[in-house]
Simulated assay, not measured.
Amino acid sequence: MARRRRFTHGGLDVWPGYVDALSTLLMVVTFVLLVFVLGQAFLSVSLDRRQHTLDQLQHQMAELTRMLALERGHEHTLELTVASITAERDKTQAALKTLGAQLDQRNQDLGEQAANSRADEDEIARLNDQMIQLNQQLAAVVQTLDIAQKDVKGRDAQISDLGNRLNIALADRVEQLKKYRSEFFGRLRDILHDEKGVQVVGDRFVFQSEVLFPQGSADLSPAGQAAIQKLAHTLKQVATQIPADLPWILRVDGHADRTPIHGAFASNWELSSARAITVVKVLIGAGIDPRHLAATGFADYQPLDTAQTPAAFARNRRIEFRLTDR
């Protein structure tokens, strides 16, 4: 008791305040950890549901494609059958016509003869029987042809329905790619919102050339290297969520202004293409699969601003990123 009185004598007792502050800090850290764990759990459930939905769509589209191929094979077989029946019908009609001509000629010959023999009557009866049989065969062929044509029409309707369903499935895949493109651009916008000369234009993410390259050069500046590394990091995160069977590419488009170029490049074609290729190489070096990358050069033939001013020229000197399908 004497030692405690000496500690508090002439000043404040800070021990209770220290204990309260430590308890408060401990509760705050516990609360933050709890929020983080819950957020990770909700995110994991959302990603599992999304992957399950994409697997179902992939299975449906594969089944529709298989059914369409099968129906097309059936249609080809029916077409061959119809063609064979049609040829047989034509041959039967030709034979019937020939037989009719023979019968007419025979009747004419018999009419010219003075007396009818029994043999001639038997021949006439035989020819009449053949004509009846041929007519019956022709009727059967026509009936078979009608059935085959109806079957072909039914197959055509099924193929049309399968085509519509396949188109719907393909449209759904396009919508999926749009969703990932929106997520990719949204993340890039959040990461690069403080960068001047960077903006989203429609379905493209646009960097003004001065952000990435020195004037007239296809070598990235240090700031440009950093910006492309950020873009690559974001693309890798989004790419892990895109299904493996969804065909997509990040197209890197190089653009120049109308000012004639002098120096290492023969024209704006070479400059714009070289800049796009440089960016693609950096992305590959950062771990992006080359099969999902494309570099194109447009020189000065796709301007954003047609005015003949320095500001317009600056807008037209740019690198555009477009996430699209192959």
Rank of each mutant, 00 (worst) to 15 (best):
L68R: 09
L47N: 09
H74P: 00
V45E: 03
T65I: 00
G39D: 12
A41V: 06
L38I: 12
R49E: 12
Q56Y: 00
S23Y: 02
T24G: 03
L34D: 05
V45P: 05
L34R: 03
S46H: 05
V45F: 00
F42E: 07
F42R: 02
D20Q: 13
V35R: 09
L64M: 13
F31H: 04
L22H: 09
L64I: 11
L34S: 15
L33A: 15
V19A: 05
F42D: 08
A21K: 06
F36W: 03
A21L: 13
L47D: 14
T24K: 03
L34H: 05
L43N: 12
R49Y: 13
Q60S: 10
S44A: 14
G39I: 05
T65L: 02
F36N: 02
L25S: 15
G73V: 05
T30P: 11
T65W: 05
A21E: 11
L68A: 14
D48H: 14
Q56N: 06
D55T: 05
S23A: 14
H74C: 09
Q56P: 02
D55M: 06
V37L: 00
S23L: 04
V45T: 10
E71N: 12
L64S: 12
M67I: 00
V37N: 04
V19P: 04
L57T: 08
D55Q: 09
L25K: 14
V28S: 04
A41F: 11
A21D: 12
Q60H: 03
D48F: 14
Q60R: 01
L70Y: 06
R49C: 06
Q56F: 00
A62W: 04
V19G: 03
L64K: 05
Q56G: 05
L25R: 15
L26W: 13
F31Y: 09
L43T: 10
S46L: 01
M61Y: 00
S44I: 06
D55G: 07
Q60C: 01
R66Q: 12
G39M: 10
L26M: 12
M61G: 01
L68S: 05
Q40P: 08
